[in-house]
Every structure is written in C-alpha cells, then in structure tokens.
Measured scan of single mutants.
Amino acid sequence: MEVRTIKVFTTVDNINLHTQVVDMSMTYGQQFGPTYLDGADVTKIKPHNSHEGKTFYVLPNDDTLRVEAFEYYHTTDPSFLGRYMSALNHTKKWKYPQVNGLTSIKWADNNCYLATALLTLQQIELKFNPPALQDAYYRARAGEAANFCALILAYCNKTVGELGDVRETMSYLFQHANLDSCKRVLNVVCKTCGQQQTTLKGVEAVMYMGTLSYEQFKKGVQIPCTCGKQATKYLVQQESPFVMMSAPPAQYELKHGTFTCASEYTGNYQCGHYKHITSKETLYCIDGALLTKSSEYKGPITDVFYKENSYTTTIK
C-alpha cells in the first residue's frame, strides 16, 4: 500500500517557510505537534488534498525554529505562539472599519479597549522592536488589523473576551517599542525636605499616572512627601515624541487643539466601556464603527496623549 502524501510549508514567522512532505494517514499533531492554519487549530486533523502548498504555523520545537521565533517575536515564552494563534482565530472574524481616516474595530468580545489602543497607536510616533509587531502594525494602518490585535493580546497575556485596560495595554506595548531616546527629568520640591531631581528613561519617561493635564504637570502637581507634608512635583525636561497622561476616570474637559487623542471610560472596574476622542479640525468621538463630532467635550476621561518633541522648564 502506497503512502499518500502532500507537500506543505511549516513556519513560526510566515517569513521562513520549511518544506514538509506530510503523510495523509496521520494527523498534523502526530507529525508536527500543535499546528495552526489561519489561526485555526488543526492539530487533530489529517492532511487533505486542499492543504497542498498551504502554510501551517507550528510551535518552535527545534533550534532553527526557536531562533526564527525569537528573532521575529522577541520572546522565548513557549506558550506565546499558541496564544497568538488562538487569538487570531477570533480577531480574523472582527470587522476593521476605516473611521475618520483611522483603522478602528467594530465592537465584539469586549474589544473596546483594543480599538482605543489601536486608534491611539496610529496617532503617536512609535516604532516597535519585534519585527512581528512592526509588520502587523503597518498592515493594521492599511486596514488589516487582525494579526496586530492578536499579537497585542498575546504580548499582554490576554484572551479574547476578557476586559482590558488601555493604560495597561499601552504599557505592555511600550515595553516592546523603541523608547531608548526618551528621557524625563522631574523635580520634587518640599518646604521641609528641599528639592530632589529624578531622571527617568524609556517607558517611565512617557507615562504618568495622577493627572490628565500635561500643562498642569509642567506647572506642578501636589504629591505627598515622605515627611508627610505636601510637596510639588513638576516637569523639568521632556525628550520624547509623545507623552501619555493618565488618571482614574473623572469628568474632564478636553479643549480642541490642546491634545492629540484621549480615552474615555464609562462604567466601573468590573464592567465598563471605552471610547476614543481625537482632536482634528474639530473633536471626534470614535466608538467602534461609530463616529460623532463636537466642538467641545466633557466626560469621564482616563488617558490623554500629547505630541511632544523637546521641553525644558522655565521655572527657576
């Protein structure tokens, strides 16, 4: 009895394709271990004539594949690729409408935090270190965002349907971005203890939790000093293409032309909904596939993004 075979390709990165001759009487799992086709788990399936010449994702289970996976995804987590594939199996079914010149995501599976993050990423200057993220990001900007969303979920250790947080998501993504040249110098002034300067680099240099107003941050924000008295913390120097200011959701007025974009969060910790506000020729609110415009805006804002380049204080 002759062994019926077909020729397929296996890959971990969709760049390096490895030619395989597979036995049609055995499952993919018996031949390769966990195997995925377009995100779908085909591990328990036997090869079919229609699979001839198709590319299958496999887990990096030998040295060659491990090197290829690390170079593309910059992670050695053995569960990463499987999590990416199972997320992709959902995100490829989502709709990605162009809204006001940006790629958004039609609401499904509690994905409003991903839509808000995706919209924000198209408006701030950011370059990702893992080629996987950078490639998928370019495709997302062009309207094909399924891979990018699935990668975000995998890097953030999230599953489809789980509630997510924009600030946490951005923080994970910033860790995989090139923020080497970003720098922030802060000064804390206390009447009792004097003053202390701190220099922050990388992710810490672009994120701040405690106030939404970048102007206020430049002037000074009140913080408790270690001595128990009130101290003032203010920005001395900022070198970065953008800054992200966050605070627990509270009524906040966004003035046209003073910011790049913002995240609105309605609801409580267990259950809520994100919308995205962007400042173009007027203010726009993007909620999944829905767009509304207004000249002014007041609502429960939790993150505001500002364009920056270089700032030095005039406070002496």
Score class of each variant (00 low, 15 high):
residue 311 Y to L: 08
residue 234 Y to C: 12
residue 159 T to H: 15
residue 310 S to F: 14
residue 244 M to F: 07
residue 148 F to K: 04
residue 186 L to W: 13
residue 273 H to K: 14
residue 93 K to W: 07
residue 97 P to K: 07
residue 134 Q to F: 04
residue 29 G to M: 05
residue 311 Y to M: 09
residue 290 L to V: 04
residue 198 T to V: 07
residue 72 Y to D: 09
residue 227 C to V: 04
residue 2 E to A: 10
residue 161 G to Y: 04
residue 268 N to W: 05
residue 169 T to W: 03
residue 152 I to N: 03
residue 267 G to T: 12
residue 249 P to L: 03
residue 247 A to V: 04
residue 95 K to G: 08
residue 67 V to T: 15
residue 201 K to Y: 12
residue 291 L to K: 06
residue 290 L to T: 13
residue 200 L to S: 12
residue 285 C to F: 07
residue 132 A to S: 06
residue 59 L to Y: 10
residue 145 A to Y: 00
residue 211 T to Y: 03
residue 211 T to G: 07
residue 263 S to H: 15
residue 167 R to N: 06
residue 225 C to A: 05
residue 49 N to G: 05
residue 71 E to K: 15
residue 144 E to C: 12
residue 230 Q to M: 13
residue 166 V to H: 10
residue 288 G to T: 07
residue 123 Q to R: 00
residue 236 V to N: 05
residue 182 C to M: 07
residue 260 T to H: 06
residue 173 L to H: 02
residue 209 M to W: 13
residue 298 K to M: 14
residue 306 Y to K: 04
residue 97 P to L: 10
residue 209 M to Y: 10
residue 25 S to A: 11
residue 217 F to A: 08
residue 253 E to K: 07
residue 197 Q to A: 08
residue 314 T to R: 10
residue 165 D to I: 15
residue 183 K to R: 12
residue 7 K to N: 09
residue 269 Y to L: 15
residue 212 L to I: 04
residue 16 N to P: 01
residue 178 N to A: 14
residue 233 K to I: 12
residue 89 N to L: 13
residue 217 F to T: 06
residue 138 Y to P: 10
residue 12 V to A: 02
residue 232 T to V: 11
residue 25 S to M: 12
residue 204 E to A: 09
residue 282 T to R: 10
residue 294 S to Y: 14
residue 45 I to E: 15
residue 68 E to G: 02
residue 158 K to E: 00
residue 98 Q to I: 03
residue 61 N to F: 15
residue 302 T to F: 06
residue 139 R to T: 07
residue 120 T to V: 11
residue 51 H to I: 02
residue 176 H to D: 02
residue 309 N to T: 13
residue 199 T to L: 10
residue 88 L to A: 00
residue 207 M to H: 09
residue 58 V to W: 06
residue 270 Q to E: 05
residue 266 T to G: 11
residue 198 T to Y: 14
residue 215 E to K: 07
residue 22 V to A: 15
residue 229 K to E: 14
residue 103 T to R: 06
residue 204 E to L: 05
residue 76 T to F: 14
residue 301 I to N: 07
residue 61 N to S: 14
residue 154 A to T: 10
residue 69 A to T: 07
residue 196 Q to Y: 10
residue 218 K to W: 02
residue 91 T to A: 06
residue 100 N to F: 09
residue 188 V to S: 14
residue 239 E to Q: 12
residue 254 L to P: 05
residue 175 Q to K: 14
residue 13 D to I: 01
residue 312 T to L: 13
residue 250 A to I: 15
residue 106 K to L: 00
residue 10 T to A: 05
residue 193 C to N: 04
residue 126 L to A: 02
residue 161 G to H: 03
residue 93 K to L: 12
residue 271 C to T: 15
residue 60 P to M: 00
residue 129 N to L: 08
residue 21 V to F: 09
residue 121 L to M: 07
residue 271 C to N: 00
residue 95 K to W: 06
residue 304 V to L: 04
residue 58 V to A: 05
residue 274 Y to W: 13
residue 17 L to M: 10
residue 145 A to P: 11
residue 180 D to W: 06
residue 214 Y to V: 11
residue 41 D to W: 05
residue 15 I to T: 08
residue 135 D to P: 00
residue 274 Y to G: 04
residue 259 F to A: 05
residue 175 Q to C: 08
residue 85 M to I: 08
residue 216 Q to P: 02
residue 293 K to T: 13
residue 94 W to E: 00
residue 101 G to D: 03
residue 27 T to N: 15
residue 249 P to R: 09
residue 155 Y to Q: 03
residue 51 H to A: 02
residue 205 A to H: 03
residue 64 T to K: 15
residue 254 L to Q: 08
residue 139 R to G: 08
residue 44 K to A: 07
residue 291 L to G: 12
residue 260 T to P: 09
residue 202 G to F: 03
residue 259 F to D: 05
residue 103 T to H: 04
residue 281 E to K: 07
residue 136 A to V: 02
residue 127 K to W: 15
residue 30 Q to G: 09
residue 66 R to W: 07
residue 9 F to Q: 15
residue 236 V to T: 04
residue 294 S to W: 11
residue 140 A to S: 08
residue 62 D to V: 05
residue 105 I to F: 02
residue 21 V to H: 07
residue 217 F to Q: 03
residue 79 S to M: 12
residue 268 N to Y: 09
residue 149 C to Y: 05
residue 142 A to N: 09
residue 86 S to H: 12
